[in-house]
Design a protein around this nucleic acid. Structure first.
Lengths: 361, 361
DNA sequence: TTGAAAGCGATACCAG
DNA sequence: CTGGTATCGCTTTCAA
């Protein structure tokens, strides 16, 4: 006795159901949910009542076929870099009050930015935010002919897509000047070596590197650039090697905070401190301001960037803007205790280093 | 002279176009892209040639209306907590080789987990990963009747959705025992106070707290629980107050690493170190192992959890599993230098504290 | 202002 | 194994 079967499979109510219950046409229901012009208050009331009664929610998939998908794609190089998730955070917080949602597509240090962006386009997203994707400007220009795109980081001179950057040269100059002011003369630059990046795409790290070289040259100092890869602990190893190889270096300008954090790890593990080697980074990620880390950096306001990117997209999607916008954020120095005045006697802790060198043999 | 107009608007090729070019029916094209049974090699070859020729890519929106949307929804409490983005990282890396993509829906410390999950369902996602959402078990049970769901964190006894947890009691016990072994007897517990959580939903922080109380009680020690909110610097303030209020406390068990990091900030800013107050956290976020932080924690393998969650989902989506799975990860202690043997004379740095107290007046 | 009907681009069933 | 056709749930003309 009793009902052994499970409840019958319920179907989500469709627009047809709403129309039937309200005794109106599908078209009118559509107008109501889109808040479109040309319908009487009475009609709106009836429809809204039916919607409430049925608990109707429109299918985004169906809407996407004709109109908007209410989703925005975000290409992101990597999810374990705090700066990137900060941008994501800003973007989602800006979307929180809208019907839009974010589809994330990590590039995974990987080959094909093209493929990633295409897969977003396949989902008929209403717009794309791309954080320094590995794609040709021409290709992006083409894609942007029928899809709003905001490129974050690269300083492309695009005509179809928007760009959002910070003034990387200014930022890097702030940092190098800061180190020079502290009396450093042997300043190394740790950066990512990426053969895939075309020089004319003006990726951030190239600009920072150029500014570094220029600023040093202006004071007649020799640049010392070290490139590293982006596999898990490659930056750490490179930093360690750098420190062991050249004891004359008293300061390291890391191309971003992630590299800087790894550099600080190397320094700490060699038994050194900021008194021995100063470190500055770029991005001002969240942990940088923690007293135990206290990393000098330059902020480009990651979360704000995420918000601006959304705003730029919505201007095109809702506002109908068609001319490309190129927004630039002014970076600000955040001087902290990872950078200190150069010490008279040079580096200490040479015992540690020698021990370390012995270990390697 | 010359063409002033822009190139004509190109339409994405549709399945009809492919069928036409290949000289076959739409249905056959569909079979090819779905890798379905029952078509000759010759047919496949023709179709694939046409696909390549046209650069055809199926529309996900259209596919979503009949079959699969190839997207997975991820409800996440907050994007600025490293542990959560670690899970996300694991999930996306598992999806990297598939056609699936992640749609993220942050709950934003917010009211309505229900609304967030519904908005994912509206997008006809093929499955949902929900990280400790603020929803009633019954409601989730209902939603899970026609949508694969993996709940991370909460230890619900569900019949329709899967759960993925770590053994929070075991983890917390590891930590408290660790502190006891170091000789601490005045151990406070800093946790989040969330009225919205129903006790029978067994959220992680409740279990950790219970284990903390039990373990102390077993040694005849008094528990000391402090609750804090999740607004920006609330945890930091609470930790500072705690330190200033009760100088007898020599160790703090923070309910997660985010709270622990904030506690370390408070400690550092009060001029104290791990010699004065030991701190342990939970989750083992990435920065915890950095030598400058060196936070003792318990790992529940965040990235792995993200991967497992995807696997569970795919088992249901592709494999057709229908019975609920309840997977539990065994947590492991990561003892580091933020926790140290209790000092004979109790806390030092009392001068600093007194100064701080004076400042507050 | 409202309703009817034609698509959007795929999937799935049913003949042949 | 292949082709034709109904269908998914919505948007968008076009008449009335």
């Amino acid at each position: 006795m009793g009902e052994a079967r499970t409840t019958p499979p319920r179907r989500r109510p469709s627009m047809d159901d709403v129309a039937r219950v309200a005794g109106v046409s599908k078209g009118s229901v559509s107008k109501v949910i889109r808040n479109a012009y040309g319908l009487s208050p009475a009609m709106r009331a009836r429809v809204e009542a039916a919607i409430a009664e049925l608990g109707y929610r429109p299918s985004i998939a169906a809407r996407a076929m004709r109109g908007s998908s209410f989703s925005i794609g975000m290409e992101i190089p990597n999810l374990d870099i705090d700066f990137f998730t900060q941008i994501m955070d800003g973007a989602t917080s800006r979307l929180a009050t809208s019907e839009y949602q974010l589809i994330i597509a990590p590039e995974r240090g990987g080959a094909n930015g093209t493929r990633v962006l295409e897969s977003l386009a396949d989902r008929s997203v209403d717009g794309i935010i791309a954080i320094a994707p590995q794609v040709e400007p021409e290709w992006l220009e083409e894609l942007a002919r029928d899809l709003p795109i905001v490129l974050i980081g690269r300083h492309d001179h695009s005509t179809n897509y928007d760009t959002l950057t910070d003034d990387d040269e200014a930022g890097a100059t702030l940092l190098v000047d800061h180190l020079l002011d502290l009396g450093h003369t042997r300043i190394a630059h740790l950066t990512v070596g990426n053969q895939r990046d075309r020089p004319d795409a003006m990726p951030p790290h190239s600009l920072r590197r150029m500014a570094y070289e220029t600023t040093l040259a202006r004071r007649g100092l020799e640049p010392f650039v070290v490139e590293t890869g982006n596999r898990r602990d490659e930056p750490y190893r490179t930093a360690k090697d750098l420190l062991l190889t050249d004891p004359s270096i008293t300061a390291i300008f890391a191309g971003n905070d992630s590299l800087a954090i790894d550099t600080l790890r190397a320094i700490a593990e060699l038994g050194m401190t900021a008194d021995d080697v100063s470190v500055v980074g770029y991005d001002d990620i969240r942990i940088a301001s923690h007293p135990l880390v206290s990393l000098t950096s330059v902020t480009q306001f990651g979360e704000t960037m995420g918000e601006i990117a959304i705003d730029l997209l919505l201007e095109r999607i809702r506002g109908g803007r068609t001319v490309a916008a190129h927004r630039q954020v002014r970076p600000e120095l955040r001087a902290r205790s990872s950078s200190r005045a150069v010490r008279a006697g040079g580096r200490a802790a040479s015992r540690v280093i020698e021990r370390s060198l012995a270990d390697r043999a």
